[in-house]
Structures are given as structure tokens and as C-alpha cells.
């Protein structure tokens, strides 16, 4: 039974990825495409094996930036959403700023941030935060606003304090939305890290991609993309497992 469920859940996505890789390999071989133009999956795997030291080292740097950026984003979103709960008027103050922060493309801000904060960790973390805090905040604010008014009345009728209501009603109510926001943030944090590293850095997978491209080391660019994908998938599944643990008693 367990085996059947695993096959049913995991076989279709695994098979589709395998099919794409297979088609890619066959196309490269049949069309005789040069590996500097489009490396075959076999070339990329070979590059992953040959350059594992460099890739691993720079993956750790990128992962470190992403984790710091995500933690800051989560803290910012929790503070903003809590302030909106405690002070209703704060929402009106902060919302225009939140929207403005998303209207300006972060890519255009990146060079300015490099000028201001240099090419160290800080500028990259800021770019990751700018990318990731918005979905987190929006998910949390929406969840806070969607708490059932009758539930609030029920708590009030029991003489609940605002702190009790926050702990016993709001936090559990917004938890599913918060975790959904975290999943989105995990995936897009990788984009933020690459942009930061691309524009001004001397380390990280974005930098590896930046210097490998002009040298026609296309296999290494693809190998870096594979590493970035693994980081994103890893972070996503960490949140999924936390979600499963925390929400195991929720009706789904």
C-alpha cells in the first residue's frame, strides 16, 4: 500500500523530468551540438563530478546568503504583521511602502546597493530580503484579515485579552498562510542571491556562472544551475516537512 502511494505520488514527476533529460541528450547527440553551445546532460553530470569542490564551496556561500536573507525576511514579515494586528492604523501606513518596494524592480536597485554596501555579504542579503519579504508579508496580512469575525466575537465573549487572542487564535490561524509564504520565499530567494552575486561579488554560484559564461564553460554554468535548483528544492522540502509536522492536526 505504502509502495503504491509512493509510486503514485512520485513516479509522474520523476518520469517527466527523466523524459526531458532523455530528449535533451538525444537531441544534442543527433544534432551534433557543440558542448560550449549546449552541453548534454551527460556533460553537465561530468562537470558536476569534476568541479564538485568549486561548486560545493560556492554553493555553501550562496546557501549561507539565502538562509541569512530568509531569516531576516521572516523576522521582518512577522514584525510587520504583528504590528498590523496590534495597531490597525499601521496597515494604512505600511501598505503603500510595501507596494512601492515591489514596483521598483529589484534588479535595478542591485547596482546601487553594491555601491552603498560593497560586494560583501550585506548587499546580497538585502537583495534576497527585497525579493522574499513581500510574499511573506502579503500572505500574513491576508491571513490576519481573514480571521473569522465570529471567532473573534467568541473570544471576546469569553473576556479574552488581545494577547490571548493573538496567541490562541491568530497565530494558529495564520500558520498555514505563513508556511505557504515561506515556500514561495524559499524558491525566489535563489533568484535574489544569483542577482546579487552576478552584479557584484567574488564568490557564490551567481559569480561562478558570471565568470564561466564568457569563457564558454557552458557546462559549468549549467552545473551551477543544477546546484541552485538543488538548493531551492532542499529549502522548499525543509519547509514542507515543517509544515507537515506543524499542521498534522489541521483538517486538510
Amino acid at each position: 500500500m505504502q509502495k503504491e502511494i509512493i509510486i503514485k505520488n512520485y513516479l509522474p514527476p520523476f518520469a517527466s523530468v527523466l523524459l526531458i533529460i532523455l530528449l535533451w541528450q538525444i537531441s544534442v547527440m543527433l544534432l551534433d551540438i557543440e558542448s560550449w553551445f549546449l552541453p548534454s546532460p551527460v556533460n553537465i553530470i561530468a562537470e558536476l563530478i569534476n568541479s564538485y569542490k568549486i561548486l560545493f564551496e560556492h554553493s555553501l556561500i550562496t546557501l549561507f546568503e539565502i538562509i541569512i536573507g530568509l531569516v531576516i525576511s521572516i523576522l521582518i514579515s512577522l514584525v510587520i504583521s504583528s504590528l498590523i494586528f496590534w495597531f490597525k492604523s499601521f496597515e494604512k501606513t505600511i501598505y503603500p511602502l510595501l507596494i512601492t518596494s515591489q514596483i521598483i524592480p529589484v534588479f535595478t536597485l542591485a547596482p546601487i546597493l553594491i555601491v552603498w554596501f560593497g560586494t560583501g555579504l550585506f548587499s546580497k542579503v538585502i537583495i534576497i530580503v527585497l525579493f522574499t519579504f513581500f510574499p511573506l508579508v502579503i500572505n500574513l496580512v491576508t491571513a490576519i484579515k481573514n480571521v473569522d469575525i465570529d471567532m473573534i466575537r467568541m473570544f471576546n465573549s469569553h473576556g479574552s485579552t488581545k494577547l490571548q487572542m493573538y496567541k490562541k487564535l491568530y497565530i494558529p490561524s495564520i500558520l498555514p498562510n505563513f508556511l505557504s509564504g515561506c515556500k514561495i520565499a524559499c524558491v525566489i530567494s535563489v533568484i535574489g542571491a544569483v542577482i546579487g552575486e552576478w552584479i557584484g561579488s567574488s564568490s557564490g554560484l551567481g559569480w561562478v556562472m558570471k565568470i564561466s559564461g564568457p569563457q564558454f564553460q557552458t557546462s559549468r554554468v549549467f552545473a551551477s544551475i543544477v546546484c541552485l535548483s538543488i538548493i531551492a528544492i532542499l529549502l522548499f522540502f525543509i519547509v514542507v516537512s515543517i509544515e507537515k509536522k506543524l499542521l498534522r492536526r489541521y483538517p486538510l
Binding site: R153, M154, N156, H158, R249
Partner: peptide, 28 residues
């Protein structure tokens, strides 16, 4: 004061979905 002498039950049961029966019943 709110909740002092009066209990109020609304049309919806308003059970918290993340709490079991015992913890819902003891909420007040």
C-alpha cells in the same frame, strides 16, 4: 465585564480546527 457572568454561543459552533474536543471545550 465581558465573559464575567454571560456565556455566548453563536449559530456556528466556532470550534478551533487545530484543537481537539477537549482543548476546544476548555478554551473559555
Amino acid at each position: 465585564n465581558l465573559g464575567d457572568k454571560i456565556s455566548y454561543m453563536q449559530q456556528k459552533d466556532l470550534l478551533l480546527p487545530w484543537r481537539n474536543v477537549s482543548r476546544n471545550a476548555g478554551l473559555g
